[in-house]
């Protein structure tokens, strides 16, 4: 019959007394010696607490120092890499543009500067394309510096204005056009002296020349110096009145010398912007 033990049966003095009489076993002597010797060896090996503390004292500081060194190195490397990248973006290499200017044969500084200018990305927004109106052309002329393509457009526009001025039927319209042309010439000194009046395809083919002409304020004199034979056509008309100039133009046209006539017309218009040039009659 299963019964739960009575309470307070955790101790029995009589049993304890009997058990004490039965408990005489002891460990053998060799075990005593071995154990006590091992205990002394452990003590003689050094204070375990000190050895542990020594390692514990230096382990954390060394780890922190290593982390700090690595972090600083990584940050410095990232900063240097970022600086190099920014520098490469702000200073692009324009070297490939220089040979173009040399190949064209134009060795003046203006050509090279223009070539460099063409290579540099134009950060300024390009001005609106000028319409075939004197007012818009004037505003375009006033905007400087301009890329070569834009100056080419200006030259073409000038040529268009000139042709319109020649075909004008009324004196007031012609005077207005000539006045606009003259005003335009004043603001664009370089281009009229060069490419628009030499020949039709010249302005596009000789882009660098046009650009060089626009960039160089000495272009009219330079053009004259470059064409001494042209200057000879009106050398004797330097002090002549406009009528003499017109007579020479007519004579050259009748002689079939249209190029010479055009050169004289250009010089006539430069000297006498208010005068009207008769139409070509061929």
């Amino acid at each position: 019959m299963a019964v739960t033990p009575e309470p307070n049966m955790e101790r029995d003095p009589q049993l304890a007394a009997v058990y004490r009489a039965a408990s005489g076993e002891e460990p053998p002597g060799h075990l005593d010696a071995a154990i006590r010797a091992a205990a002394r060896r452990e003590v003689d090996a050094g204070p375990a607490r000190t050895r542990k503390v020594r390692f514990g004292n230096w382990g954390v500081p060394l780890s922190l120092a290593a982390v700090v060194v690595l972090s600083v190195s990584v940050v410095l490397m990232m900063q240097q890499e970022g600086a190099d990248r920014i520098e490469s973006l702000t200073h692009p290499i324009p070297a490939q543009v220089v040979p173009r200017a040399a190949d064209t044969g134009i060795g003046n500084d203006a050509a090279r500067s223009l070539a460099v200018e063409e290579a540099v990305p134009q950060r300024m927004p390009a001005p609106a394309p000028a319409a075939v109106r004197p007012e818009s052309a004037k505003s375009v002329a006033e905007t400087a510096p301009q890329p070569a393509a834009k100056r080419r457009d200006d030259a073409n526009e000038l040529r268009t204005l000139e042709s319109n001025a020649v075909r004008a039927t009324t004196a007031a319209e012609a005077d207005h056009a000539q006045g606009d042309l003259g005003a335009k010439r004043e603001r664009v000194p370089a281009a009229p002296a060069l490419s628009p009046l030499r020949s039709a395809p010249a302005p596009i083919a000789g882009e660098s020349a046009v650009g060089a002409g626009l960039a160089d304020p000495r272009a009219p004199a330079a053009a004259m110096a470059d064409a001494p034979e042209k200057a000879a056509l009106w050398r004797d008309l330097v002090d002549a009145p406009p009528e003499k100039w017109l007579q020479r133009i007519v004579e050259l046209r009748r002689a079939g010398k249209t190029a010479d006539a055009a050169a004289v017309v250009g010089e006539f218009r430069r000297r006498f912007p208010a005068e009207r040039v008769p139409e070509e009659s061929h």
Partner: peptide
């Protein structure tokens, strides 16, 4: 399971019994 009668009585060594025999 424990026999109740035996559990209720406390153990009292019999007088004269060899202690060593009891211990064994």
């Amino acid at each position: 399971s424990i026999d109740e009668p035996a559990a209720a009585r406390s153990f009292e060594p019999e007088v004269g019994t060899d202690v060593r025999q009891q211990a064994a």
